[in-house]
Design a protein around this nucleic acid. Structure first.
Lengths: 211, 211
DNA sequence: GTCTATAGCTAGATAGAC
DNA sequence: GTCTATCTAGCTATAGAC
């Protein structure tokens, strides 16, 4: 006859097995996507040094320790993950879109501008890339920043080529779009008006449509 | 007869009086100008949140407590003082210079470009203004940032008018110069090449000389 | 997977000697 | 005016219960 103790143990074992393999110990309070967007909004407005784990946790509804469960390497991993997310966003919404020769160039441009406007919330949100360009942060995240910018430039270069520009001219123009967007976000922030950013989006359009 | 004690007291009093009024207790280790430039370089490369009082002190050769003697309100006062210094720099080297109708417009432009290049060390140094545009910093320093930018724009607007532009067109162009400089500094940093900044300085020149 | 509690440290800031 | 020593609060990160 099986002793009670063992039965209990077996039950417990079974339960643990079930939980570990088929379901989490406790339900996730927040999914990966929402988690990431909460974290990003904090880093975007406070920067890496300015964001504390308390704030990051608060923005997601989790406790600090829970954040460490999902990002074992802490703040650096959180930031890196956010940056990879941005990298993919650029790849998807700028690079691929602007390189898609199945769509008319002017339609691509229009869509990209809309995406950019959406990403920065009309100019209210500062660029994550920008929020991390302090010297000390560059050592940690420089690679990701560079990648995102390279992809941005690649996308707009392809757009320019589709508009009939030479590769060199197209690349120059592409770099201009990046400079203009980054610069206008700063000026918009500091002058507390969305105008510079909004005007810049129009400028970028006209750079391709009237050139 | 005067008791010894009183004489001694008088001597001490005299000494203190002399020291307090005619000379500092100890000689200053570093003058205001050098002090400020050391502090600025730290804030410029690390930002407000990223700069610690230990680093700030180290950059000046003083101890933390000595910094508090010279800036009783600590980090905020240090940063504000740096910002006022930058405000004055812009006022002097951009606004006044570009508004001086005794100098030929193209000479003013040339000099201003040289000054800007010098301020940012050819693109190596990030703009102090930029280093402080995080949301949380804006509450503290927003006014100074705005002033500096307004003065920048005023200077370039006057330059444009001297080149024969209408006030409105001149102002638009002036805003563009600010956006371009700020943006190109970011891109230069992130891409680890001074090229975008240097090219932008040339672009600004041509905006006035060939337009 | 989430939580409370806490370790270990560094931040900004102050007290008081010289 | 500068210094050493120290305070408290907040930080990043970890331990262990549920």
């Amino acid at each position: 006859m099986i002793p009670k103790k063992l039965i209990k143990n077996n039950r417990t074992f079974g339960k643990i097995l079930f939980i570990r393999i088929f379901a989490p110990m406790r339900p996730q309070k927040i999914n990966d996507q929402d988690l990431l967007e909460g974290l990003m909004s904090v880093i975007q407005s406070k920067g890496y040094d300015g964001s504390s784990l308390n704030e990051l946790a608060a923005s997601t509804g989790l406790q600090k320790a829970s954040l460490y469960h999902r990002f074992p390497n802490g703040k650096k991993e959180i930031t890196t993950t956010v940056l990879v997310y941005v990298e993919q966003w650029v790849e998807e919404n700028i690079t691929k879109l602007l390189s898609d020769n199945n769509i008319k160039p002017n339609v691509r441009l229009e869509k990209a501008i809309t995406n950019i406007n959406h990403l920065y919330d009309g100019g209210k949100k500062i660029c994550v890339l920008r929020a991390l360009t302090m010297d000390s942060n560059l050592e940690l995240f420089g690679g990701h920043l560079k990648n995102a910018m390279i992809n941005w430039i690649e996308g707009f270069t392809n757009l320019g080529i589709s508009f009939g520009l030479s590769p060199n001219v197209a690349k120059g123009k592409a770099e201009q779009t990046l400079i203009l967007v980054q610069g206008s976000l700063i000026v918009s922030k500091a002058m507390s008006t969305l105008n510079p950013f909004q005007e810049t989006l129009k400028t970028i359009k006209s750079m391709y449509l009237s050139g």
